[in-house]
């Protein structure tokens, strides 16, 4: 593939994908449309999580940060009367700001210590929500959170319009995330992941870049929380507990985190399995167990995630191999 020219098939695939996404809700039942709304939000959630992992640190606080965005946006709109679209942005900004503050203690740690530290920080935030009934509503959380305002005849109370709203917001966010990764910043994130000492030796301030990745990822997670809360209308601290974090981890691990599309693949495939197959079989209570088995099986047998199947599939479809281009770590990761 020559540089600058986009493979025409990619255009075709993109248009087909877009058409599918637009047409999708019409083939779904009401409850499936609700699931589709959450799926679109979760796509952004797991993609933002991946941005964080680019620097090599795995956080266990991402879902709590999403909650920060949700609580902030809910409170701005409910208590202060800020219009919902603006409160959503404020929610995202609040999540980013909290992440910036947390960077100072957390990025003194690495690896396991960071993992545990981010977990502890998240739990502290959740306990604060639980403890302070004013303004967070305590263990019962917040109710009657205003929804997205109607635009003319379109009511965002319905899943269908909200699905399109999310599609637009998430689409734009994903484009932004993609741009970050493909820019010099993304290259620097990868560099810090693979050899932070070498990066420092040529003047890369690894703390600032780790913080940047964390703040950006958290801002988008906060946006996810805001999108979520104004659709569901109610939140409580347990919505953002470690079990929910486990789901994000599962999506990312099962999909794979080496490529931009890996985690998206993970969340889409697992949601479809969950909603279509498992729901049809009626295994409601057993679902976490099946998730557990999927998680274990993917770590054991598909350590590079579903995304690692894609190149194999491509190789099978066409004998021609395209030369790796751009960010190398996104192509092949051991």
């Amino acid at each position: 593939m020559s540089r600058g020219k986009v493979n025409p098939w990619l255009w075709v695939a993109g248009i087909v994908l877009l058409a599918t996404l637009i047409a999708l809700p019409f083939g779904l039942s009401f409850s499936q449309r609700e699931v589709a709304v959450l799926l679109v939000i979760n796509v952004l959630l797991v993609s933002s999580y991946r941005l964080m992992t680019l620097t090599g640190e795995w956080s266990l606080g991402h879902v709590v940060i999403m909650g920060v965005g949700a609580y902030a946006s809910a409170l701005f709109s409910k208590r202060l009367g800020v219009p919902v679209p603006i409160s959503m942005l404020l929610g995202a900004v609040t999540a980013g700001a909290v992440a910036a503050l947390l960077s100072f203690p957390l990025f003194r740690m690495k690896g396991f210590y960071f993992l545990i530290g981010s977990f502890a920080a998240g739990e502290v935030i959740r306990l604060i929500w639980k403890y302070f009934t004013n303004p967070f509503g305590g263990p019962k959380g917040l109710k009657l959170i205003p929804g997205f305002p109607d635009i003319g005849p379109i009511s965002f109370f319905e899943p269908l319009p909200y699905y399109y709203l999310c599609l637009i917001v998430v689409g734009m966010s994903l484009f932004f995330l993609y741009r970050i990764e493909r820019s010099r910043i993304g290259l620097t994130f990868h560099a810090i992941h693979w050899q932070d000492k070498l990066a420092e030796s040529v003047g890369v301030n690894t703390f600032s870049y780790r913080m940047l990745a964390f703040v950006l990822a958290s801002t988008f997670a906060g946006l996810c929380g805001a999108l979520y809360v104004h659709y569901i209308g109610t939140i409580n601290p347990n919505r953002f507990d470690v079990e929910e974090m486990v789901f994000v981890l599962i999506w990312a691990i099962v999909g794979g985190t080496a490529t931009f599309y890996g985690p998206i693949l993970g969340v889409v495939v697992l949601t479809v399995i969950n909603e279509v197959i498992l729901r049809a079989l009626g295994f409601d209570t057993a679902r976490p167990m099946i998730y557990g088995f999927i998680l274990i099986a993917s770590v054991l047998f598909l350590p590079n995630g579903l995304e690692s199947l894609v190149p194999k599939l491509q190789a099978w479809r066409t004998s021609r191999r395209t030369a790796p281009e751009g960010t190398p770590a996104s192509e092949e990761k051991a």
């Binding site: 795995w58 396991f112 993992l115 486990v246 981890l249 691990i253 209570t285 057993a286 679902r287 976490p288 167990m289 998730y291 557990g292 088995f293 999927i294 998680l295 274990i296 770590v299 054991l300 350590p303």
Partner: peptide
């Protein structure tokens, strides 16, 4: 997963879900 500590951690989360669900069932 001996050479993959993160993998071991993730797998233990999977095992956690299995044990929990077994108790629920």
């Amino acid at each position: 997963l001996r050479d993959n500590p993160l993998g071991g951690l993730i797998a233990s989360i999977g095992f956690l879900l299995i044990l929990q669900t077994t108790a629920v069932l």
